[in-house]
Amino acid sequence: MDNHNKTFTLIDGTFSVEDADQILTALLNYKIDYHNREDFSKHVRFNRDIEHSKKRIQELTATKKAVKDLIAATESNKFNLVINSTITVRLEEA
C-alpha cells in the first residue's frame, strides 16, 4: 500500500445534549466492554498479561465520567454539542 496512514471520520456533527450523551456513552461503553472481553479471553486462554487492558479500562472509565460531568453541567435547552472525531489507521509491519 502506498500510503501507510489512513484517516476516517467517525463522528462529525451537532447533537442535542441527549443525543450526544447517548452517542458518547455508547462509544465509551463499547470500548470498555471490548477491553473487558479481551482481558477475560487472553487471561483464560493464554494466561497473558492484561495490564494494558486494565489501564485502558481505567482511562476510558475516567473519560466516561468526565463526559457525564460535562453533560450534567450543560443546560440542555440552551446548548447543542458539536462532536468531531477522527481515527487514524497506520499500517505497521508485524
Rank of each mutant, 00 (worst) to 15 (best):
N84C: 07
T63K: 14
D2S: 01
L60V: 10
T61S: 15
T7E: 04
V67Q: 03
T7F: 00
E92P: 02
I57S: 06
Q58C: 05
A20V: 01
D21A: 13
F8K: 08
H4P: 03
Y30P: 02
I11F: 09
D19F: 02
V17R: 06
I71F: 04
T9I: 11
E38K: 14
A20D: 01
K65T: 14
D2H: 01
F8N: 06
V82L: 11
T86G: 01
D49G: 12
F40Y: 15
L60I: 10
E59T: 12
K54T: 07
R45A: 12
V17M: 05
A73H: 06
D19Y: 03
T63W: 11
N3W: 00
N29R: 09
T9N: 07
H43L: 15
H4Q: 03
S41M: 13
L81C: 04
E51K: 14
D49L: 12
E59A: 08
T7R: 03
H4W: 03
E51P: 02
T9W: 00
L24C: 05
T9D: 04
T14P: 00
S76G: 06
E59V: 11
V89H: 00
R45G: 10
F8Q: 07
D2N: 03
D69E: 13
A66S: 13
T63L: 15
H52S: 10
E92Q: 03
T14M: 06
I50N: 15
N29H: 12
T63H: 14
D21S: 14
F8V: 04
E51H: 14
K68S: 14
E75W: 05
N77I: 09
F79T: 05
A66C: 09
K55C: 08
D2Q: 01
N47R: 10
T74Y: 03
Q58K: 11
A73M: 06
I11C: 08
H35R: 12
D19H: 07
K68V: 04
T61I: 10
E59S: 08
K65Q: 15
V67H: 02
D69G: 09
I87F: 03
A72P: 08
D19V: 02
L24P: 02
K64N: 13
A62G: 12
K68E: 15
D69T: 09
A20K: 01
E38V: 12
N80G: 06
T25C: 11
D49F: 11
